[in-house]
């Protein structure tokens, strides 16, 4: 078996060929083409696209909307990632414990994963509606005044963040649940006999053992914070005044509403760069054996 025959090698490549063609056409080529396009101007019928060097990038650096959208996206990531991961872990611990009706609880937490974001947004829109919406109805019971949650630049991003957390936490719970089920119950028993508090057990034993899962979930959460924009289409369209717009949504607007593919490509390069940094981070931090063995 040591010397792989030429025929064997050929088969290896041939089996790989169909998938490679698809990846070439719809992942590698568009990635490189995006990069190339970001150095050209937007061509029109009379004026074809011309090489403009870094002009698109200087335009971007002077574009206030870009900075706002980038900042929004940072806030969106900073809130959705830790909160949804913490909730996911808590949910998993509950569902894995001796809680009564735990399969019902598990189903509730997992439910948002099965629902399309667009449908979910339709329902949440009602929650946020001023005066007749559920939040304002509940708030009025406590004498709190009605508020235009989605119309106020100060609250709109928060509303978007809440929905994303609601949507993601149950999905991440599954990975923690799978990891928790591999932990031996004797560990907790032993800790309890030694007089360790539940908090101590969690902090010193359970959480460190769950570290690989946390990293895996973290990577997914980071990617999602740049990818999950569906609800914006229904709830805010990025408004008011771009207060809730995110990078990918802005890319969509620039490309398909303002029809400026060159600038949209430039913005996409930024998004690709962010993802590349995450990929490198993953490669450096994650135990290579976990993923490449």
């Amino acid at each position: 078996m040591k010397h792989a025959s030429t025929k064997h090698q050929l088969y290896g490549w041939l089996l790989l060929l169909p998938a490679t063609l698809f990846l070439l056409a719809f992942t590698y080529y568009p990635t490189l083409a995006t990069l190339a396009k970001s150095f050209f101007s937007q061509g029109t019928a009379i004026r074809p696209a011309a090489f403009v060097g870094l002009e698109n990038y200087t335009f971007m650096l002077e574009d206030d909307v870009f900075w706002q959208v980038a900042w929004n996206n940072v806030i969106y990531a900073l809130f959705t990632i830790p909160i949804s991961i913490a909730l996911a872990l808590m949910m998993a611990i509950w569902v894995n414990s001796r809680l009564k009706f735990k399969s019902l609880a598990r189903m509730s937490f997992f439910l948002p994963t099965m629902l399309p974001m667009i449908a979910v947004a339709n329902i949440w829109l009602f929650f946020y509606t001023p005066e007749i919406g559920l939040i304002d109805q509940v708030a009025s019971v406590f004498g709190i005044e009605s508020h235009n949650w989605l119309g106020d630049p100060d609250t709109v991003l928060g509303c978007i963040i809440v929905i994303t957390i609601w949507k993601e936490a149950g999905f991440f719970m599954i990975f923690y649940l799978a990891a928790l089920q591999t932990l031996s119950p004797e560990l907790e028993e032993a800790a309890r006999l030694e007089g360790a508090s539940r908090w101590y057990y969690f902090r010193r034993i359970m959480f460190p053992l769950l570290m690989p899962t946390t990293l895996f979930v973290l990577i997914n959460a980071v990617i999602n914070s740049f990818k999950l924009v569906d609800h914006l289409f229904i709830l805010t369209k990025g408004g008011p005044d771009n207060a809730s717009s995110l990078l990918l949504y802005y890319i969509y607007e620039v490309a398909f509403s303002f029809l400026d593919q060159a600038y949209a490509s430039t913005l996409t390069v930024i998004l690709l760069a962010v993802l590349a940094i995450i990929a490198i981070g993953q490669f450096v931090f994650l135990d290579k054996k976990v993923h490449y063995q």
Binding site: T27, K37, F226, K227, L248, I251, Y252, T268, L275
Partner: peptide, 9 residues
Amino acid sequence: IMPEVLIVE
């Protein structure tokens, strides 16, 4: 780099 990111191209 999922297809969502490459919608333009």
